[in-house]
Design a protein around this nucleic acid. Structure first.
Length: 399
RNA sequence: GGUGGGAUAGUCAAGUGGCCAACGACGGCAGACUGUAAAUCUGCUCCCUAUGGGUUCAGAGGUUCGACUCCUCUUCCCACCA
């Protein structure tokens, strides 16, 4: 039982620091029913969770299964100083209401995975704000500049001559102090967080908390391209609030190679099961497309439901395998005869008439499933299904 | 505070008076192909009813028939020195 739990906790993890402590905590749970705390921090600036975030959430849920109480930390204080990523972007300070709104959408998304009854939502503004400037300076005395510059992303940015704000140096300290205040037993984070996570251990020691948190790091999930990390700004993400059809399609679009990574980090199938599937694909008895479809359905199911997931599959086949039009299309109407390029822009499937012209020339535009080539075409009264490429559709009614 | 270097399209990055709507790379879009929105190959990639017109190279002025390119000031970034 204990071994099984430990194996499940280890699954997919990139690195664990102080594994013995985790074993001890679990043993105490299995033998005496003792619970412990698992901390993970979230930034309230990005309200849309994607699958990259859920890797961590799923790991937290695993701990909840085995006696862990999750400290779901909202970094509302740290967000207000956060890390300004390069360039001259002045960071906008989030208003209280914005943060609140973000958080509530955040948590409703997170509780699709986490057990709400075993989760404490905490805000670091509650203890960081009262810290004051003296407390802040005291905190800062725990770290030298040299050590800070050792940190990979700082040294890289320094070398690349991108600016680093002084306040960014405070970020790991504050995050570490959160662990001091919360007396966390374990902290979870991505591998990119290593420095900050270790800071928690160091500060817990410095502030004499009597324990040092164990650290479990999850790998960063690759995005749809399979190379860069999944992130919203790179637009290679699958959002947990994505429409079922999109979600299904996006999963199906990943490479066969990446699919196994997704299985390991996102599927709830056991490792044995996955190994079995993998060997079946290798010996040719199972088609990779089928395996990917199953994954797409599992994931779509998790964030929507079975019916919607199955519909998404049917819909996908309809559009791509049989190249038919989707069941639901956005409808638009206009009052008089309209030029085709303008119509495409008005229906939001082309960004400009210039782009529309180019696409028409390339044979990418279809009306009622028929390719068109006349740039000057006028649409007279009637109903049309407009299509650009394989994925952009609109229905237009001309009166 | 001083000295020097820099700011070019979504990103990186060429371009040192007309050949510049601006090389190239990445990204993005499309076409062909495919089990796929993958991979690969090909084309496109500022806007405008367009063999033409308009607006761009941090910002404001100036020199010039003509400026991304030269001059002045401003803003921001980087390095070295203090």
């Amino acid at each position: 039982m204990l071994q099984e739990a430990l194996r499940e906790i280890n699954r997919g993890s990139a690195e664990i620091i102080d594994n013995e402590r985790i074993e001890k905590l679990l043993k105490a749970y299995f033998e005496e029913g003792k619970t412990y705390t698992v901390k993970a921090g979230f930034d309230p600036t990005a309200p849309d969770l994607h699958l990259g975030h859920t890797v961590l959430l799923q790991k937290l849920a695993t701990f909840q299964k085995y006696g862990g109480r999750v400290q779901f930390l909202i970094g509302d204080f740290t967000a207000s100083i956060g890390d300004p990523t390069g360039k001259n972007i002045t960071r906008k300070i989030l208003s209280k209401e914005d943060i609140k709104k973000n958080i509530s959408s955040y948590t409703t998304q997170a509780f699709k995975i986490l057990d709400e009854s075993k989760t404490d939502i905490v805000y670091n503004n509650d203890w960081l704000a009262p810290l004051g400037s003296i407390g802040m300076l005291e905190l800062a005395s725990n770290l030298t500049v040299a050590r800070m510059l050792e940190r990979d992303d700082f040294s890289k940015r320094y070398a690349a001559q991108t600016p680093i704000a002084l306040s960014e140096f405070m970020y790991p300290l504050l995050q570490g102090y959160d662990s001091v205040h919360l007396k966390s037993d374990i902290e979870l984070g991505g591998t990119d967080q290593k420095f900050n996570l270790l800071m928690g251990r160091q500060l817990q020691k410095a502030y004499d908390v009597k324990k040092q948190q164990a650290v479990l790091m999850m790998p960063i999930l690759e995005g749809l391209d399979g190379i860069q990390k999944m992130s919203k700004s790179l637009n290679n993400y699958i959002g947990v609030t994505d429409e079922p059809n999109d979600m299904f399609g996006k999963v199906l679009s990943i490479s066969d190679e990446l699919m196994w990574r997704f299985y390991e980090l996102l599927s709830t199938k056991s490792l044995e099961e996955i190994a079995k599937i993998k060997s079946a694909v290798e010996d040719g008895s199972l088609h990779p497309k089928k395996v990917k479809e199953d994954l797409a359905i599992e994931i779509t199911c998790r964030f929507h439901n079975e019916e919607l997931a199955n519909n998404a599959k049917v819909e996908f086949d309809k559009i791509h395998a049989k190249s038919q039009i989707p069941t639901e299309i956005d409808e638009f109407s206009c009052d008089s005869e309209i030029w085709i390029a303008q119509a495409l822009v008005d229906c939001n499937i082309e960004p400009s008439t210039s782009q529309a012209r180019r696409d028409i020339k390339q044979g990418a535009v279809k009306i009622d499933q028929e390719k068109i080539s006349d740039i000057q075409l006028q649409l007279s009264a009637g109903e049309y299904i407009l299509q650009v490429g394989k994925r952009k559709f609109a229905k237009l009614k001309v009166n």
